[in-house]
Simulated assay, not measured.
Amino acid sequence: MTRSARDLLATIRRELTHEEGANRLVPLVATGRAPLSVVAALAAEQHHVISSDWSSFLALAARATDPRAREYFTGLAQGEGVALARLADLAVACGLVPATLSEHEPTPGCQGYPSYLAWLALNGEPHAVVLALAVNFAAWGAYCATLGKALREHYGFDDRACGFFDFFATPAPEMEDQALAVVQSALDAGQDLTLARRYARMLQDYELMFWNTLADQAG
């Protein structure tokens, strides 16, 4: 019997969820202990991340042969465009000039995630990449929800300044349903999605590296 895409997603998420406390930055921001300079560094690093991921999603859409997968990746690319616009408001709240974000010298530890996603865009099996991204997005969204709340409570940020985090924290069940439809189609066709777990593990660990590289800057 063909395995359910939803069950497979839940299983991989459960297996790859990091232990509480593994992310050292989010608790610092959640309690107001992280300096504003670290939040500013996050915004600057995200400028590079989003710019890269936007291109990666478009490349994945071009490589995918399944129309549903192409639509999924194209939707993600469009979302990066929205996020990049909202990032400018976060930058202003942190005391940065949005026009100069591209001049920020990126940190290797923060850029592992987009670099690996770019590798997946060239080498990954698109259906497996869809599943891996669906695994990762849950953790990213939860972190963004915590930061959006904390920046309002402890740093005096308004809704506009928190719009970047709110965008990713807002549940998007339609996107997950779309991903599950792509994965289920692959499973029904007998495709091997074994690599999805590896892709997801790498994305999860590179994301954790992003957060903890910034935590190291908090002193």
Score class of each variant (00 low, 15 high):
204 Q>G: 08
158 D>S: 07
143 Y>G: 11
218 A>V: 10
63 R>H: 08
60 L>Q: 14
17 T>S: 12
149 K>Q: 08
188 D>T: 04
10 A>E: 08
67 P>D: 12
173 P>R: 01
196 A>P: 11
84 L>I: 08
103 E>T: 14
198 R>F: 07
210 F>M: 03
94 C>K: 03
190 G>Q: 10
141 G>T: 01
78 Q>S: 08
189 A>M: 10
3 R>A: 10
76 L>E: 06
26 V>N: 01
36 L>T: 13
107 T>W: 09
42 L>P: 14
167 F>D: 03
191 Q>T: 10
139 A>R: 09
186 A>T: 02
98 P>M: 01
147 L>A: 08
74 T>F: 09
181 A>G: 15
170 T>Y: 13
135 V>S: 04
1 M>S: 15
27 P>N: 06
70 R>N: 15
54 W>G: 14
28 L>V: 00
98 P>K: 04
8 L>E: 11
211 W>P: 02
182 V>W: 09
29 V>S: 06
54 W>P: 05
102 S>F: 10
24 R>Q: 09
77 A>T: 14
39 V>L: 03
81 G>Q: 15
95 G>T: 03
147 L>N: 06
144 C>F: 01
216 D>R: 11
179 A>C: 10
96 L>Y: 01
107 T>D: 14
62 A>G: 14
109 G>N: 07
91 A>S: 01
174 E>N: 04
120 L>I: 03
91 A>G: 02
137 F>W: 15
189 A>N: 08
156 G>Y: 02
199 Y>V: 05
55 S>Y: 11
103 E>M: 13
213 T>K: 14
67 P>A: 04
137 F>S: 08
163 G>R: 04
157 F>C: 04
99 A>P: 06
71 E>Y: 12
29 V>A: 07
91 A>C: 07
46 Q>P: 00
40 A>N: 05
215 A>Q: 00
37 S>G: 13
142 A>Q: 13
27 P>T: 09
98 P>R: 00
173 P>N: 00
214 L>Q: 00
136 N>E: 13
207 E>C: 04
59 A>W: 14
157 F>M: 14
142 A>W: 06
88 A>G: 08
98 P>T: 15
111 Q>A: 11
134 A>N: 13
30 A>F: 01
145 A>T: 05
108 P>V: 10
97 V>D: 15
21 G>F: 06
137 F>T: 12
94 C>R: 04
